[in-house]
Design a protein around this nucleic acid. Structure first.
Ligand SMILES: Cc1cc2nc3c(=O)[nH]c(=O)nc-3n(C[C@H](O)[C@H](O)[C@H](O)COP(=O)(O)OP(=O)(O)OC[C@H]3O[C@@H](n4cnc5c(N)ncnc54)[C@H](O)[C@@H]3O)c2cc1C
Length: 588
DNA sequence: TAGGTTGTTGTCCGG
DNA sequence: ACCGGACAACAACCT
């Protein structure tokens, strides 16, 4: 944690933790600091802007209820555990209660999206202030900062001997939307208020700049293997900070608010009879215990590609929502895995290794974050230095059919339904539907798919999601476009009976196993008997023939790659020669 | 520098 | 249930 100075605390000093994606007591450096440093009071602060999943005006709960529910439970759990160690509990602000004043509204004049067209391709992880447009504050950034500013000036600063005796802690997170939000808060709220700010680093196993410093020329390594070498050359991730036992309460004049009610959550989630993710630190730790601590042999021999996308009870840890929201610390996860590897090796077992192991999964997360951090326009094709430029089709109807789980391919539709209902799908399920939407069948841009995932996943993570969509669409990192998932064959390998399809698409539940992956091949009499006629009770398939379509798409991909290669040969010129670019710039 | 090997997680066919 | 090879062929990383 960047703590500059050892100014005396106590009398009148107030600590604030600005909470975002570290909703826990364990491995929480600010709390540890606050306990040690004897602040006279502590405000755990959480701000809800209109881009938060709670906000029903923009994102109705019927759409991403699973994430709303998860966060709601996480906040409720945190509120309770904070109180159990003497804190006054959460203060939750909603920006809608802090309408902007006239003069501030004049500030946001940047509604332009696409002015960024520089063919300059570069990495710029540093905060140079280049790349102006992607750093332009959103209205929600501004309203968030505004609420913070108002809270500080009306409720906190009057209680403090001076502004610098108020210390605001926040977690560093390198996903662009979070960088932008904190930057906006610094500029519009924290600096003007004159409070001290303290950043803590618990979101990743190491700081991104540590990885970059070990790489070549300040750019991220070009392959996962190279990244692993860098990771291994660093000391192991820091140990977790001990969990606090006692915290100061809220300032007398500030009241804990509890967690706002979510009307929409009265309605039970329509579960296809499956698991529903429970939020909160204790649930997260329980899941970690269940999958890793109590099951070291399983965890230590885990091989990701061998896990089934269509298992009825998930074949992977399901810790991603917890890692995303910080209800389980990534380095706690990492260190518990290390213990599992030791125990397994001691018992004579052979540990799995990256990339397929569970440590390997956490390294994928680091690697994803590193690219997202280093790469401008990471959520777009245009202006993204690592993205192959591919002429995707614009087809809103096809996109909608995919999004709604109405493609007519049961395996795809089942996965998309699980995504909608539950908010979590297995990694290889994500592969299957992402491939189908992009290079495999529909030839629709990965950006569209990423937006749907961002909205619906309970573990939606800007850095990881965009990275993986680039991977699957053969836009970056992975280029073997001739390896293509079949919406018919792929699921059969691990679920020949189609039980997963029966679970999520009840209309097809009576189909014989022979037809369940391709119901259009069932004779009309069978369709009638099963009570599900294709074209009437279940959609016609959106693509006549997957094999032909995907073959055709491989041709289009080859074409796009050819153009890329020619462009590189022509434009690339000498490398290293001439205009050597500034730090952290690389050629495509 | 060319040319062989490797890369989390494909499919289809034959054994 | 699993294994090997053809398919037609990408880019990064070795040597
Ligand atoms: C198109 C697509 C979009 C994705 N979007 C997201 C997303 O928004 N958020 C997200 O957390 N994951 C995303 N993933 C990665 C991966 O599918 C999920 O992290 C994983 O399925 C979560 O389940 P788990 O916790 O049981 O994973 P496990 O296999 O148990 O892995 C353990 C942890 O490692 C991390 N992890 C696992 N796989 C990956 C991966 N491929 N890349 C980066 N980190 C990984 C997660 O934090 C996970 O909790 C996406 C994958 C694809 C193909």
């Amino acid at each position: 944690m960047s703590d500059n100075g050892s100014e005396e605390k106590g009398s009148g000093t107030i600590a604030i933790q600005l909470l975002h994606n570290s909703l826990r007591l364990h491995d929480n450096p600010p709390l540890h600091d606050i306990e040690k440093a004897k602040y006279s009071s502590f405000v755990p602060l959480y701000i809800i802007a209109s881009d938060h999943p709670f906000d029903q005006s923009r994102t109705p709960l019927t759409v991403n209820k699973s994430r709303s529910k998860f966060i709601h439970e996480s906040l409720t759990s945190l509120d309770g555990s904070l109180k159990s160690v003497g804190s006054g509990g959460l203060v939750v602000l909603e920006t809608k209660d802090y309408p902007a004043t006239k003069s501030e509204e004049d500030d946001d004049d940047d509604d332009d999206d696409e002015e960024e067209d520089s063919s300059e391709e570069e990495f710029s992880g540093s905060d140079d202030g280049d790349e102006a447009s992607q750093y332009a504050y959103t209205p929600d950034d501004l309203s968030y900062a505004h609420a913070l500013s108002r809270f500080l000036s009306s409720s906190v600063l009057p209680l403090a001997p001076n502004p610098s005796s108020v210390h605001v802690y926040y977690e560093r997170e390198t996903s662009l939307p979070v960088i932008r939000r904190w930057r906006c808060c610094l500029e519009k709220a924290l600096k003007p208020a004159g409070v001290k700010t303290k950043v803590y680093e618990t979101h990743n196993l190491h700081a991104m700049d540590e990885y970059l410093a070990r790489g070549k020329g300040g750019s991220p390594p070009a392959s996962y293997g190279a990244f692993c070498k860098i990771f291994d050359s660093l000391p192991p991730p820091d140990a977790c900070v001990p969990t606090v036992g006692e915290l100061p309460g809220l300032p007398k004049e500030v009241k804990g608010t509890g967690v706002p009610k979510l009307e929409g959550l009265k309605v039970d989630m329509k579960t296809g009879g499956g698991l529903v993710f429970k939020g909160g630190e204790s649930e997260g730790l329980k899941q970690l215990k269940k999958t890793v601590i109590d099951n070291p042999a399983w965890a230590a021999t885990f091989e990701k590609p061998k896990t089934a996308p269509n298992a009825l009870s998930p074949s992977t840890t399901c810790l991603s929502p917890h890692v995303k929201h910080g209800t389980v610390s990534p380095r706690l996860f990492f260190h518990e895995l290390t213990k599992a590897y030791e125990a397994n090796a001691l018992g004579g077992g052979k540990n799995s290794k990256p990339p397929v192991s569970l440590h390997g999964q956490l390294l994928w997360r680091e690697y994803n974050y590193l690219y997202a951090y280093s790469c401008p326009n990471f959520d777009r094709m245009v202006g993204n230095p690592v993205a192959r430029q591919i002429p995707w089709d614009d087809d809103p109807l096809l996109l909608k059919a995919w999004k709604d789980g109405r493609t007519g391919f049961p395996f795809i539709d089942a996965i998309m339904t699980q995504l909608k209902e539950e908010g979590w799908i297995h990694h290889l399920g994500r592969h299957a539907v992402a491939c189908f939407l992009t290079r495999g069948d529909l030839w629709i841009s990965w950006e569209e798919g990423a937006k749907v995932f961002e909205e619906r996943l309970v573990d939606a993570d800007w850095s990881i999601n965009n990275f993986n969509w680039q991977w699957l669409s053969c836009t970056a990192h992975f280029y073997q476009y001739f390896r293509c998932y079949s919406p018919i064959s792929f699921g059969k390998k691990t679920d020949p009976n189609g039980d997963y399809i029966r679970k999520w698409i009840p209309a097809l539940s009576k189909y014989p196993k022979k037809y369940i992956y391709e119901p259009w091949t069932a004779p009309p009499s069978v369709q009638e008997e099963c009570g599900c006629v294709v074209g009437k009770d279940y959609p016609d398939r959106v693509v006549e023939n997957h094999t032909e379509t995907s073959k055709g798409n491989m041709g289009r991909m080859a074409e796009a790659y050819k153009i890329h290669k020619e462009g590189k040969e022509k434009g690339g010129g000498g490398k290293g020669g001439g205009g050597k670019k500034k730090k952290r710039k690389i050629e495509k």
